[in-house]
Design a protein around this nucleic acid. Structure first.
Lengths: 199, 199
DNA sequence: CCCATAATTCATCGCATGTTGAATTATAGC
DNA sequence: GCTATAATTCAACATGCGATGAATTATGGG
C-alpha cells in the first residue's frame, strides 16, 4: 500500500511509465474515452502526478505522440532498395511498424476521428513520415500527389484491419497483404502519369 | 419562447428532426463528443424528448444510422455498367455518396474509432454496402478478398480526405480523384489472380 | 546532518454528462 | 365536449471527468 510522499529506492522512471500508459490507453480507446484516471491506474500512479508532470490532458497526448516514430525511419527502409521493390517495402513497413498495439499511428488515427487537434497531428505525421520522404525519393513533379495516394491506401488498410476489423483483412497475414497490396503501391509510385493531375 | 407541453399545429416531424440532428452531430464530432444536449439543441428540442423517443444515447445512434443508405444503392450503380468501367463507377459513388457532410459513412468511421459497437456497425455496413454486392458481381473465388481491398482503399481515401484533411486529397476534385484511383480499383476487381490468396 | 527541492498522494472543486420522473399542454377518438 | 393519450418541457439526480492546492515523504547537494 503506497502512501503519500516520494517513493523510496531508485530514480524516476515514472514519467516514462506514464507516457507508455498514455500511448497504450489512447491507442486503445481514443482521446476522449481515455480518461486520465485510467491512464494513471495503468501506470500505477495517482492522477495528480500526471497533472504535475504534463499539466493537462492535451499536453500529455502530445508528449505521448511526440518522439516515438522518427520520420527518417521510412527513409532508412527505402535506402538501398531497388526501385522495383519500393512499393513492397513501404507496404511491409506500414503493416508491421505502424500497426503495433501501442503504435502512435493507430492511436493518432483513433484520436483524429473525434479531435481536430489530433487530426492536425496526424496530418503532420503523415506528411513527415510518409509523404515527404516518398516524394523526395520519387523526385518527380507529381510526387506528393502520388505519395498521398499511397498514404491513403495504407491508412485505409490499417483502418479496416485494426480499427474496423474487416474480416478479410484482419485475418490475412502480413505477407499475404504485402503480396496483394504491394504491387498497387508500386504502381502509384512508378507508373507513368495517368492524367493531368492538378494542384 | 416555447414553454412546456405539447406543441400546437401539425403533426410530429420532430422525431425525424432529432434523427437528422443526431446524424449531423455524430458525423461532425464522433460518438462520445456528440452530447445529447447538443443534438437536442440542434434539433430545437429539450434533451428529455430524445430520451422519451429513443431511450438512451446508443439507441439513438443506432436509429440514426439504420436506414439512410440502403445496400442496394451500389448494386444499382453497378447495374448496366460495362465491366471495364466498374472501378471508376464505384470510386465515384464512394467519393460522392458516402462523403456528404451528414453521411452515415463518415459518421460511422468517426464513431468506430472510439466505440467498439460502432466499429461493429461499420463492419457490417462495409460488408453489406461494399463487399457483399461487389463480391456477388465479381462471382469469382477470391471475390471477397478483392472487394475488401477495394473497400480498404476507398475507406482510406475518405479518411485521409475528410477526417484527416491530407492536403493533396482534400483539395483535389472528385473527377481528379476518380481519374487517379479508379484504375487501381478496377485492377483489384478484374486483374488476374496475383498470388495464392489464403483464407 | 540539514535543508531545499523533487516526487508523490489525498482531498476536493466545479462542471458537464446521460438519465429519470413529474408536470404541462395539445390532439384525437368517442 | 370529455377524456385518454401523445408530445413536450422543467427540474433534478448521480456519476465521472479534468483540474487544483495542500500535505507528506524521500533524495541529494552543501
Amino acid at each position: 500500500m503506497t502512501r503519500t510522499g516520494r517513493r523510496p529506492g531508485d530514480s524516476s522512471v515514472t514519467k516514462a511509465e506514464i507516457l507508455d500508459a498514455a500511448r497504450l490507453t489512447f491507442a486503445e480507446m481514443g482521446y476522449e474515452s481515455a480518461t486520465l484516471r485510467r491512464i494513471a491506474a495503468t501506470a500505477g500512479v495517482d492522477v495528480a502526478l500526471i497533472a504535475h508532470y504534463f499539466g493537462n490532458k492535451e499536453s500529455l497526448f502530445v508528449a505521448a505522440h511526440d518522439l516515438p516514430i522518427n520520420p527518417s525511419d521510412i527513409a532508412g527502409v527505402l535506402d538501398g532498395v531497388s526501385e522495383g521493390e519500393v512499393g513492397e517495402m513501404i507496404t511491409r513497413f506500414s503493416l508491421a511498424m505502424l500497426a503495433a498495439d501501442d503504435s502512435p499511428a493507430i492511436s493518432l488515427m483513433r484520436a483524429a476521428s473525434t479531435n481536430s487537434s489530433a487530426a492536425a497531428m496526424l496530418r503532420e505525421f503523415i506528411d513527415r513520415t510518409l509523404i515527404d520522404p516518398i516524394a523526395e525519393m520519387l523526385d518527380v513533379a507529381d510526387g506528393r500527389e502520388r505519395a498521398a495516394l499511397v498514404a491513403s491506401h495504407l491508412l485505409g488498410v490499417l483502418f479496416a484491419r485494426h480499427i474496423v476489423g474487416v474480416r478479410e483483412l484482419a485475418t490475412a497475414s502480413i505477407d499475404e497483404l504485402v503480396d496483394a497490396i504491394g504491387p498497387t503501391i508500386q504502381r502509384y509510385l512508378t507508373e507513368p502519369a495517368w492524367s493531368a493531375s492538378a494542384n
